[in-house]
Amino acid sequence: MNDPFVCRLEEYRIAAEPFFLPQAKEIDIGLAASANRLPLLLKGPTGCGKTRFMQYLAWRLNSPLITVSCHDDLSTSDLVGRYLVKNNEAFWQDGPLTLAVRAGAICYLDEIVEARKDTTVVIHPLTDDRRQLPVEKLGKLYSAPPEFMLAVSYNPGYQSVLKDLKPSTRQRFVSLSFDYPPPDLEKEIVMREGGIDERLAVQMVKLATMTRSLKESGLAEGASTRLIIQTVKLIGSGIDTVSACRAGMLQSLTDDGELLAAMDEMIFSLF
């Protein structure tokens, strides 16, 4: 137990089964990808269950899940690792990617398009049949054990032309497309996660579905399943439905006065 890596790694193992309802065959595909040592690409709008899916998959595979939220300042050292000094001695600190490779864990790079393109190149040798991670400073080439899995996610719904995945990166993955669940499934998720009755869950899902229809009218993205759950939690704490819908859902979607007014009309029609 003296090895710091093992101790820390255990923190990333998911003990209890996360709640996840599959929409299609994503669990089978995820397990098959893992069995065949293939990397996963999850794409879908924000708050539709990509991260939850990874948690579930990690639980099924009994593998630790190391999540990295990518941003434009993320450097290769942040992923691979670096030397640090302690008591006048240098010691090597693995980055999350190296940690996952060495321990045979799952490394999940969330919102990969946010990272600079030169940073993400480091994952290329891990995503083909070599499954290797070169660590230049250590002069080592780690081969990933069979349990290691790399997963990345991104949201193709952002319309920005500056944020897209390069084909050379994209074409290395098994891709799973996520979307908001169909109403019945989403209702079950909301009931379970939010702890509310069926009637309210149906209404909340309806409201979210209505906002999703406004995408072509200038709404960047409709209300996600996560936002619905957030809203019902507010309702559960005693906030009245209209205020909760406004604060928990609609105001988070846009600042456009006209769209907000239209969505307000939807709330009043539903509740």
């Binding site: 209505m210 906002t211 406004l214 072509e216 006209e258 239209a262 969505m263 939807m266």
Partner: peptide
């Protein structure tokens, strides 16, 4: 009209 266009689009999805 412009408010109702969004409203109808939202409730009907078309």
């Amino acid at each position: 009209a412009s408010l109702m266009v969004h409203y109808l689009r939202g409730i009907s999805g078309r």
